[in-house]
Amino acid sequence: MKKNIAVQVDDLTVAYNYKPVLWDIDLEIPEGVLMAIVGPNGAGKSTLIKSILGILKPIAGSVSIFGKSYEKQRHLVAYVPQKGSVDWDFPTTALDVVTMGTYGSLGWIKRPGQKEKKESLEALEKVGMLAFKNRQISQLSGGQQQRIFLARALVQNASIYFMDEPFQGVDATTEIAIINILKELRKAGKTVVVVHHDLQTVPEYFDWVTFLNVKKIATGPVKDIFNDDNLTKTYGINYKVSIQE
């Protein structure tokens, strides 16, 4: 059975100050996979996600989401940025941050109402954070903050989820809670793309993987391409990981 293509990236090149950080990327992400993007620091992993989401403007190439431009498919996509990219001292509560996930479907000017509040509370419950709904966000632990971000993405009720290092700086309990939710999303037919650092957990957590280091090294099912050869090509050193059979 041939799967639909959720995300198609063609000849994408992105540069900061004329220095390419992503070079001529072609990538197809099939619908319904739980995919890790791996690569060394500075490989352009976050840049790839941001370019797909239109946050960064590429100097060449194009991106389509289910065959159409991102601008037309915005409502199908949810995004979890790196936790460190926001100021957690911002004067707001956990519930309010989650409610921001509903802003996209509201559009300009319209305010969130009872329906949006109810959805946000449900999302908080799903990530086990309902008890903290009125907590100021700076008073949450790193793992709790990450769960709030995840709840904010869940409330968008998207088809494709992009997450930038959701496991960074979280405790083991939160990591398990997050991966279980990601697996549930995949079961529900959603596509999930995660920038990931811990190579050891790739085979356990993901079924699809993309190796990236400025250029795309390889992409495909974990069981076929997650091997020492591709790891060495990506990380530049002789890499050995033991993969549990």
Binding site: K50, L53, G54, I55, E71, R74, V77, Y79, P81, S85, V86, D87, F90, T92, V97, M100, Y103, G104, L106, G107, W108, I109, R111, P112, R152
Partner: peptide
């Protein structure tokens, strides 16, 4: 009053605001 929500989300998280179309 009109753009409170947009101001809030783009001040707190510009990346999210951009991805949502604000």
């Amino acid at each position: 009053v009109a753009f409170f929500k947009e101001l809030k989300v783009s001040t707190f998280d510009a990346g999210l605001a951009a991805s949502l179309g604000f």
